[in-house]
Design a protein around this nucleic acid. Structure first.
Lengths: 148, 148
DNA sequence: ACCTATCATGGGTGAACACCCACTAATTTG
DNA sequence: CAAATTAGTGGGTGTTCACCCATGATAGGT
């Protein structure tokens, strides 16, 4: 007891601490899997947004994901270069570029989602199905409240 | 609907995504408060470890918190410089430095804990007391399982 | 037709962070 | 007693990440 590896209980008593640590672990593991494919977390988020809401003007895509338009340009460039999305100049407003998911992109998204599920299974391993459900509901509440 | 600011549901459906985002927000807010005092999250962790487990050999402190000994040396130096902890050479093994919490350190820890509570209240605002309790219990399960 | 605003893009910056190595002092081992 | 090991420390490195600015192309207002 008093294992030298034990984490201070006054920290584990803080829900924010637990959120921070588990969140970091989750992000790290998923980022690791994506990295094996030469991808980062934002690539997944972009593909998911396109799948959920359909084609986007690039600027709207950046706004939706809360990322800098300049960084979005780079991400879009990478995804387009690999054929996962298609860029097309808007004919009405030729400043804009409309981004669309390709079939290859849809297929990649399915794989990335599978990665995410796998990581989720790793991390939520000690929880029953009911508990996972409950955790997701609680976090969803917290998250939607954060978005203001 | 289809608010341009809405986050993709296929992401919010992933508990790992919610963990990652809420965790990042929690860490960011707390780090912001600490930064106003010229401190970082590790300073809090070190003080908490000393309060919970008593004096530590510096190397053990690093091992417990999972941080590089070299980085721990810097953190300890900062805390000692401000008088929050005391360094003392071990008389038996003069290579070792034993780190002890001072009264000032204990007082600072109380303030940092208050900061953490405040951030926690912000973030868990939409949850009832029962739900907060439940969330903490679930995360604790997940966290202790991660530690392997 | 000008002037201003908007979009995509490239490039650069700076903070945070986790690592890693080398060096000194001290201890332990053979 | 010599050699190998360990503790603390200083310094440096590479990565990630969020930001910010400048530029060129295009639109819209007046």
């Amino acid at each position: 007891m008093d294992d030298l590896r034990a984490v201070p209980p006054s920290l584990t008593g803080l829900t924010t601490y637990l959120l921070s640590r588990t969140g970091k672990s989750a992000r790290g593991r998923l980022a690791g899997r994506f990295a094996e494919r030469g991808l980062r977390l934002w690539h997944h988020a972009v593909l998911a947004a396109l799948a959920d809401f359909g084609p986007h003007v690039q600027r709207d895509l950046a706004a939706r994901l809360g990322i800098d338009p300049s960084d979005m340009a780079k991400i879009v460039d990478e995804l387009a270069g690999a054929g996962y999305i298609e860029r097309a100049r808007d004919t009405a407003d030729r400043r804009r570029i409309t981004v669309t998911l390709t079939d290859a992109g849809r297929a990649l998204l399915a794989e990335l989602d599978a990665d995410a599920e796998a990581v989720q299974d790793e991390i939520l391993d000690p929880l029953t199905d009911d508990e996972r459900e409950h955790l997701n509901a609680l976090l969803r509440k917290v998250f939607t409240h954060l978005e203001n």
